[in-house]
């Protein structure tokens, strides 16, 4: 297993380098630059700015400087912050939102999926499955404002926007509920469908019938015998899903005014904030690779048919 992990980690290095190079050069090829604003600056000022931000250096030199000093580089848009500072301040917010959403997604998704699979093609199946279908079809930018309208503007249960209460520092605040639910529902829908499919495959297997014949209780059959195999599709889905969730959602963060990193992922590209774009992309790339590795390990552990090689 150690060898497997080591090999995978070594494999990531060329992958990350490729991602860095592509991001860097694609940004530079895009028209416009960080200093273009509606009040245009003079050619002299532009030149001085390029010099101050090392944009006058040859591209390959800049690239090397960027990848070797990435966390300590200044953002172009927010010059008093470094890339590292921005990511370290904003990522925890996105990660927390993702974590809450994940908890909701997993608990609802697996619950509904299992229920649906127990009596396929009956109402017990149809109701959760249709709910899941609605969840998949309803985009977060509809769901979010809808929940906000009902639960904060009409009923006044939760604040409409924000993160972490008035001070912004509370570990859990009521303003975290709606965004987490919005984001969680979307993933719950997928997970419930995957769970249902996985469970249906397993529940018809011989060893389940054997377990039942041996007198195992219904709950024991589900929890001990079926879930382990039935959740395999969910596990492979979770790798990219977790990355997507904690990477933050641009839509949710914008709608609920949440200070997460998801917004920077999109906006830094629009702002031509060369350093921040590269920083955020590299951060996510690493995250995704890492999560995929974890998922692979989990899969081998859960599925005896797979081996580390």
């Amino acid at each position: 297993m150690l060898k497997f992990i080591l090999r995978r980690v070594l494999e990531t290095i060329p992958v990350l380098l490729c991602v860095a190079a592509m991001t860097f050069f694609m940004c530079r090829l895009a028209p416009g630059g960080p200093f273009d604003e509606d009040k245009q600056v003079t050619a002299e000022v532009r030149e001085l700015l390029n010099k101050q931000f090392n944009l006058d250096q040859p591209l390959h030199k800049q690239f090397i400087q960027y990848i070797t000093h990435l966390p300590t580089l200044q953002s172009f848009k927010y010059p008093n912050r470094t890339v590292g500072e921005i990511i370290s301040q904003k990522f925890p917010v996105s990660a927390k939102l993702g974590f809450f959403a994940m908890c909701i997604a997993l608990s609802l998704g697996i619950l509904f999926g299992v229920i649906a699979s127990l009596r396929p093609n009956t109402y017990i199946d149809y109701i959760p499955s249709s709910l899941a279908m609605i969840g998949i079809c309803l985009p977060t930018f509809v769901m979010g404002p809808l929940l906000m309208l009902v639960f904060s503007l009409k009923l006044g249960w939760f604040p409409a926007t924000g993160w972490g209460g008035f001070s912004g520092d509370q570990f859990f605040a009521s303003d975290m509920v709606l965004p987490s639910v919005t984001l969680g529902f979307f993933y719950a829908a997928y997970i419930s469908r995957l769970t249902r499919g996985g469970m249906l495959d397993i529940l018809t297997q011989d060893y389940i019938r054997t377990a039942k014949a041996k007198g195992a209780s219904g709950l024991r059959v589900i929890l001990k015998h079926s879930l382990r195999g039935g959740l395999l599709p969910v596990i492979s889905f979770m790798g990219p899903a977790v990355a997507g969730l904690i990477a933050g959602s641009f839509v949710i963060e914008t709608i609920f005014a949440i200070p997460g990193l998801g917004q920077d992922f999109v906006k830094s590209a629009f702002n031509r904030d060369y350093t921040l774009v590269l920083g955020v992309v590299m951060f996510y790339a690493t995250l995704i690779i890492l999560l995929n590795l974890i998922v692979d390990i989990l899969q081998v552990t859960l599925n005896p048919k797979l081996k580390f090689d």
């Binding site: 904060s152 503007l153 604040p159 409409a160 926007t161 609920f256």
Partner: peptide, 11 residues
């Protein structure tokens, strides 16, 4: 629209 929601919600 988010500004408006925050305003309506008393924030």
């Amino acid at each position: 629209t988010t500004q408006e929601n925050a305003f309506r919600g008393g924030q």
